[in-house]
């Protein structure tokens, strides 16, 4: 991370976790949704602790609640019961804007369907989070992030002019450009063919190692999960080793 970027984030900083304290911790987390007729439990008493720099995979079938768990861990949603601590902060004690501040400071995302802005160029897509928080040298940072993922010759291309693999590279560059402490990836290779999926997976792990980021990814791809330090399975709303 450049000095200026570090300074910007430290200004925003919430309490930093102590050394060896988990980056992410779940304690008896439940999540249920209620309809007119019934209450549906999606997450049932999950406990989890993720250490700094760890690569964790959460595997599960389609509809098992993986994306909901990811949303809870990233503070996009609050659990019905239990507590989640992200970077040392108990999320249930924070309001939406305070949770957003934590995300702004130290969280990155990669999505299955890339979530790139179709009318923006690759460079503009990567620039977006930097400009959102008025980061200095934004363009220089974005260019170097795209260079790092091997797309320095695709800066002015729009998503529709890029292949699926290239689009996911842009999304990865965008996720890493703010040097997050923890990166959440939702089925990052789900929309890609096998060869491209391997390339993306390698890129993700490589950047993760270089930048000492903690990686939490949800996938139904066992092969990808096995490459991680640890893989947990989400079955019937519970996490199992």
């Amino acid at each position: 991370m450049t000095e200026s970027l570090q300074k910007k984030f430290s200004n925003n900083a919430v309490d930093q976790p102590l050394e060896n304290e988990p980056v992410l911790a779940l304690e008896k987390v439940h999540y249920h949704v209620s309809s007119d007729e019934e209450v549906l439990s999606i997450i049932k008493g999950c406990d989890l602790s993720v250490q700094p720099g760890e690569k964790l995979a959460i595997v599960g079938r389609s509809g098992s609640g993986k994306s909901t768990l990811l949303a809870l861990m990233a503070g996009l949603e609050l659990p019905s019961e239990g507590e989640i601590r992200l970077l040392g902060q108990a999320l249930s004690s924070l309001n939406e804007d305070e949770r957003a501040k934590i995300r702004a400071m130290a969280v990155g995302f990669v999505f299955q369907n890339f979530q790139l802005m179709p009318s923006m160029t690759a460079l503009e897509n990567v620039l977006m989070p930097l400009e959102l928080f008025q980061m200095p040298n934004a363009e220089q940072e974005a260019r170097s992030a795209l260079e790092r993922v091997g797309l320095s010759n695709r800066l002015t291309h729009r998503p529709s002019e890029l292949s699926g693999g290239e689009q996911q590279r842009v999304a990865i560059a965008r996720a890493f450009v703010t040097r997050p402490k923890i990166l959440f990836a939702d089925e990052p290779t789900g929309n890609l063919d096998e060869t491209t999926a391997t390339q993306i997976q390698n890129l993700l792990f490589q950047l993760n190692d270089e930048l000492k980021t903690t990686l939490v990814l949800v996938t139904h791809d066992n092969r990808l999960a096995q490459q991680c330090d640890r893989a947990l399975s989400l079955q019937n709303g519970q996490l199992q080793a």
């Binding site: 939406e96 804007d97 957003a100 995300r103 977006m128």
Partner: peptide, 10 residues
Amino acid sequence: LMRAFGAQRA
């Protein structure tokens, strides 16, 4: 997307 990246509603 920007909200996920940490932008506040206001």
